[in-house]
Every structure is written in structure tokens, then in C-alpha cells.
Design a protein around this nucleic acid. Structure first.
Length: 196
DNA sequence: AGTAGGATAATCT
DNA sequence: GATTATCCTACTG
């Protein structure tokens, strides 16, 4: 059993850096995440306009996995945070493969080790996450698990910046990552987001 | 190094 | 019918 950290959304987001996320025989240490708030508070969030069939898992209790399909070909994984009905979530953007690396390499042939989970859709591929993982409980004893690291991430290495690839709300600096990690993805703004 | 375009389908308006 | 919390390839400098 594990318990999520206490605090508001950005506090929890930063506290989850360095946690280990396991699925289907591989484990990554989270090096990059993005926070998304709930109804009305965050135009970039899927929950912004209220519950829909897709985002219903975000409106449930925290500690569950929200997996969605984007751009016609990619899966992305989130951890539901906040209280029930709050609908905030944390996008797992990147991580370092620390277990089951042979399986991860098989799932993403031909890429360097630090690129295996460097990006949200790549992370899902490396861990073989798809539709069937949506709604999984992460803090119990199931095949998909999130657990705290033996050594917490160094707070001095946590960096903050705007979220990657969002069309709206790109001013909100809710992307958090660990500086100096080769598995952190490179920043790219959305095609239609205002130039910096 | 950085930038640009296209693939491709679920989801929502 | 428009939109999209991405990735890969190909190009320019």
C-alpha cells in the first residue's frame, strides 16, 4: 500500500517526482509530470467543461489511472488527484526505466535507453499501457502500481515551466521536472499556441 | 541546434 | 465537422 502526498495540486505534483510507476513488468522513475485542474479552473484540462464519458474517471476518487487516446494514435496516462468530484489529474510525461528494461526495449525497439519513456505517449508504449489500463487503482496490489521512492527526489532539482503542447492555458506553469535527467522531454509549444 | 508538416481516429460541439 | 495534454521524419542553418 502507498498513500498519495498531502497538499494542493502543485505541491502534490512536485512531491510525486521520483516516484516509481510500474506496469506489465516494467518500472519507471518519474522525472517529468504536468498538473491539470478541474471544472472551470483550467481550460487545458479535459475536465474543464464538466464530466463526459471519457473523463469520468477524473471525477472519481484519487489514486486511479486515467488513460486517454489522442491524435488518433497515442495513449497518455494520468494519476487522478484531488478529492472526489474535484477532477484534477497529473499527466505522467516522462521517466527513467529502472526495472524491466528488457521488456521496455522490446516494446520500443531501436531507441536509446533514456528515450524509452521520454514523452507521455512513449511512456505508455514502454509500459504497454492502453485502454484496458483506464481506471486501474494504483495504490493497491494490482499489476499497475505507483509507489514512493526509497530516496525522495532532491527538491533543489525540481524545475517549473509551461505545459507542453497545450492549445490553451499555455501560460500556466504547471509542468514539473527534475533538472539534469536525460529522460526529460524537450519543450515544444502547441502549433496554435501564441509564440513566446 | 531548431522548425515544419503530416499521420490518424476518438471525442465533443 | 472541428479539435487534439503527440511523435516521427525531413528539412534548414
Amino acid at each position: 500500500m502507498a498513500e498519495l502526498p498531502e497538499g494542493d495540486l502543485t505541491t502534490v505534483a512536485k512531491a510525486l517526482l521520483g516516484w516509481e510507476f510500474s506496469a506489465h513488468g516494467s518500472t519507471v522513475r518519474l522525472t517529468e509530470v504536468e498538473a491539470y485542474a478541474g471544472v472551470g479552473a483550467d481550460p487545458a484540462s479535459h475536465a474543464h467543461r464538466g464530466p463526459t464519458p471519457r473523463n469520468q474517471i477524473m471525477f472519481g476518487p484519487p489514486g486511479y489511472l486515467y488513460v486517454y487516446f489522442v491524435y488518433g494514435m497515442h495513449w497518455c496516462a494520468n494519476v487522478v488527484l484531488g478529492g472526489e468530484g474535484e477532477a484534477s489529474a497529473l499527466l505522467l510525461r516522462a521517466g527513467e526505466v529502472v526495472g524491466g528494461i528488457d521488456l521496455a526495449r522490446e516494446r520500443r525497439p531501436g531507441v536509446r535507453d533514456h528515450d524509452l519513456a521520454r514523452g507521455p505517449a512513449r511512456l505508455c508504449t514502454a509500459l504497454a499501457l492502453g485502454r484496458e489500463a483506464n481506471g486501474a487503482y494504483l495504490l493497491g496490489d494490482g499489476p499497475i502500481r505507483l509507489r514512493p521512492p526509497a530516496e525522495p527526489a532532491d527538491p533543489a532539482r525540481i524545475a517549473t515551466g509551461p505545459r507542453v503542447g497545450v492549445a490553451v492555458g499555455s501560460e500556466t506553469p504547471w509542468r514539473f521536472w527534475l533538472t539534469g535527467e536525460p529522460s526529460v522531454s524537450v519543450y515544444k509549444r502547441h502549433k496554435k499556441a501564441p509564440a513566446s
